[in-house]
Design a protein around this nucleic acid. Sequence first.
DNA 1: CGCGACGTTGATTTGCCTCAACGATTGTGG
DNA 2: CCACAATCGTTGAGGCAAATCAACGTCGCG
Lengths: 195, 195
Amino acid sequence: MDSQYTPLINNMSKFVSLTEGEINLFCSFLSLKEVKKKDYLLRQGEVCHSNNFVIKGCFKAFDINDGEENITQFAIENWWLADVKSFTTQCPALFFIQALEDSAVIQLPYDKMEEVYQKIPKIERFFRIAFQISFANLQERIVKMNSLSGKERYKHFIATYPKIEQRVPQYMIGSYLGLTPVFLSNVRKEIARGN
Amino acid sequence: MDSQYTPLINNMSKFVSLTEGEINLFCSFLSLKEVKKKDYLLRQGEVCHSNNFVIKGCFKAFDINDGEENITQFAIENWWLADVKSFTTQCPALFFIQALEDSAVIQLPYDKMEEVYQKIPKIERFFRIAFQISFANLQERIVKMNSLSGKERYKHFIATYPKIEQRVPQYMIGSYLGLTPVFLSNVRKEIARGN
DNA sequence: CGCGACGTTGATTTGCCTCAACGATTGTGG
DNA sequence: CCACAATCGTTGAGGCAAATCAACGTCGCG
């Protein structure tokens, strides 16, 4: 086992231990997709046909409201990324997903999920755990959105996701945090002097 | 099968179909807990030992920040409720969970989860689906928190959760939406005249 | 080189909060 | 069964955090 899918297998081995046979079978459902900078992995209104695991590059997931883009998620190497609602129910996607760098993802297609779960129940276990943890993380994020000021949210972000802070423009971090670029610039100036 | 656990079994049958034997086995892991109005199902700092399914009454989940309570979730009949992070990792809970009415929940204990998943894999499938959908819903909630004004968030809330709006005080809905009672009162007045 | 993308700065505006006071309703003990 | 205290919602005045508007400097890139 030393394929292009190794990073994904390593990620899953955190929660489930797959046999050689299971790994080979699982990999037969996967495919690799490269996405050039500024290209879209998904557009609002389309159906999200696959769950994606980032092995290279960086993405943003966002919607557009009154012409303003509103980022809800970043994803870099070893993150899963999808419009989960659209992927789950095969309804039109709420989000655009766009590459911020030349990127690559491993794709797990919706129409193979039932077969995957049936043939390799450990995969369903993996996603049970992954979604459970992801849910807990979103809950914490909501708490912070409601209880912290803009400056506090920014400080928390750069402490929590230093790798993202280095790779994406400030104004996108602002969008993720619900702050304008102008305000974020002022916050950064304040922080630069001692808080 | 016509026990006190029927509402829970009905809820789970939306996603998985259990045999008579599986139902009986599953029910052997459950217990019923009554919670009087204003009593706590969980306190911040405690470990969340069970996942709870509300069969009667109403709860709020909140944390306290600078003495201000900050509600992140309501739960009424047929909702699941837990501090998911604490339940998952058995770390100290971030949330208080308090009954707003005389209530009752069915409890599924953490230390039985592995056994349940092993003996009844369909249960793990159920929670995979449930957490996946819950995750999608939280993602949508974050989008709305970032893109809607206070008035819009309130209008969306009462349209989406009319039953909760009728049962809990306005100021708690405000807390859930990140708004003060004073501001919410003004918003309601505006809405009462035609928007 | 020239243009677009990005960050910064200053001036002004606004959405929402804080503070304070006041009804209305509910509940509770005497 | 009444008196009194909590609880909850409302109203008005004033204040602050963050948005908007506008202009400008810098950098990278076609």
